[in-house]
């Protein structure tokens, strides 16, 4: 799995590319220094074409860790497939989900 990062208004936007599943979840979880600390980050999921329960677990885990440390995670750009997984699992209840990453990053901090 490849992880791209960019910065918008001082907010880190993390962009995993590829499948977010049991083979890549642990790599993803340790894939960015921004996943710890009290900063606010955006995870841009536009390049994630598949997610399974382990992948969801990694997002939940990152969000939990960030919130415990006073930070926050917002998600952006879910494609139709991902949105459906979030819908049926009701994972949407745990995340702020935005249409685009820049808006998600924009009003933070």
């Amino acid at each position: 799995m490849m992880i791209r990062e960019r910065n918008h208004n001082g907010v880190t936007i993390v962009m995993p590319v590829g499948r977010l599943d049991s083979s890549s979840a642990s790599q993803f979880m340790s894939g960015s220094p921004s996943f710890s600390g009290n900063g606010k980050i955006v995870i841009d999921l536009s390049e994630v074409d598949f997610i399974d329960s382990t992948g969801l677990g990694s997002l939940v885990g990152i969000a939990r860790k960030k919130r415990e440390q006073g930070g926050d995670v917002r998600l952006a750009c879910l494609n139709e497939k991902l949105r459906k997984v979030f819908e049926i699992t009701q994972a949407f209840r745990l995340f702020d989900i935005y249409d685009d990453a820049e808006t998600a990053a924009g009003r933070q901090g």
């Binding site: 399974d52 329960s53 382990t54 969801l56 677990g57 939940v60 885990g61 939990r64 997984v85 049926i88 699992t89 009701q90 994972a91 209840r93 745990l94």
Partner: peptide
Amino acid sequence: EDWPADAGESAIVERYY
């Protein structure tokens, strides 16, 4: 799947399967 045992979060993986 070794998910955190928080009831709300474990419900996510249950719904997935």
